[in-house]
Simulated assay, not measured.
Amino acid sequence: MTTFVSEQAGPCGKTNLMGALSGLTMSPRRWFAESFPVVTPHEATAMLLLAGLFHAAVGALPLSGTGTLVRAGILMANALGMTVLHAGMAWLVSRVVGEPRMRFASIWKVFAIGASPTLLIAWIPFTFFFTEPWRWVLVALGMIYGLGMGRLRTALVLLIAGSLTTLLMLSILRLVGSPIAPAA
């Protein structure tokens, strides 16, 4: 059994960040089954913060001059905010779908850990089409193998939560008068 936990505390507590990222990349099913239970919500948040800082810093580099810090702040707020929003929606839906004792901290760990490796690549233009499905696959594997949810229930929770999040974003865009409003 390969473990991604060390005896010495680092920036992510006792979770080895590089080991966790390589484990999630090489064998996410095995990583969630073996190493996920020992990761605390604080360590998962630290992983997300480090990945989000990298995403924001590297994503703002191509923009020289004024606005670099603003762009980095927007990228960081987007990385953290969307993860919190998706985790919150999934937690609410999971309580309705039949997991009433599911704790938000458990769902948060799955979403924070699932988003971390994808943020390291998501700053590259047009990788959205690869990183976003990968994030949802990692989250699904985390819910199945890390939290022990069934496949059907996981698919149902993620489909409903993703749909609700999309509807929320579209309604916010419509309220602020964005030109990206859906066709009638």
Score class of each variant (00 low, 15 high):
Leu85Trp: 14
Phe54Glu: 09
Trp108Asn: 06
His86Leu: 09
Pro117Phe: 03
Ser27Phe: 09
Pro182Leu: 07
Val39Phe: 04
Arg101Asp: 13
Ala20Asn: 10
Ala33Met: 13
Ser64Leu: 15
Ala181Arg: 10
Met143Trp: 00
Ser64Arg: 15
Thr45Asn: 05
Met149Ala: 09
Val84Tyr: 09
Val157Pro: 07
Gly19Met: 05
Gln8Trp: 06
Ser163Thr: 10
Ala44His: 01
Leu152Pro: 00
Thr154Ser: 11
Ala72Gln: 12
Ala161Leu: 04
Leu63Trp: 12
Ile172Val: 14
Ser6Thr: 12
Gly114Gln: 04
Thr25Ser: 13
Leu17Ser: 02
His55Lys: 03
Thr25Gly: 11
Ala9Ile: 14
Leu159Asn: 05
Val58Ile: 15
Trp134Arg: 00
Ala181His: 04
Gly88Leu: 14
Leu173Phe: 11
Pro41Thr: 07
His55Thr: 01
Thr25Lys: 08
Leu61Thr: 10
His86Asp: 07
Phe36Asp: 06
Ala155Pro: 04
Leu164Glu: 09
Ile74Glu: 15
Trp31Pro: 10
Pro125His: 07
Gly88Lys: 09
Met26Gly: 04
Phe32Asn: 06
Met89Phe: 15
Phe32Pro: 05
Met149Gly: 04
Ala9Lys: 15
Leu85Cys: 13
Thr68Ser: 07
Pro133Ala: 02
Leu120Met: 08
Arg71Lys: 15
Gly81Met: 11
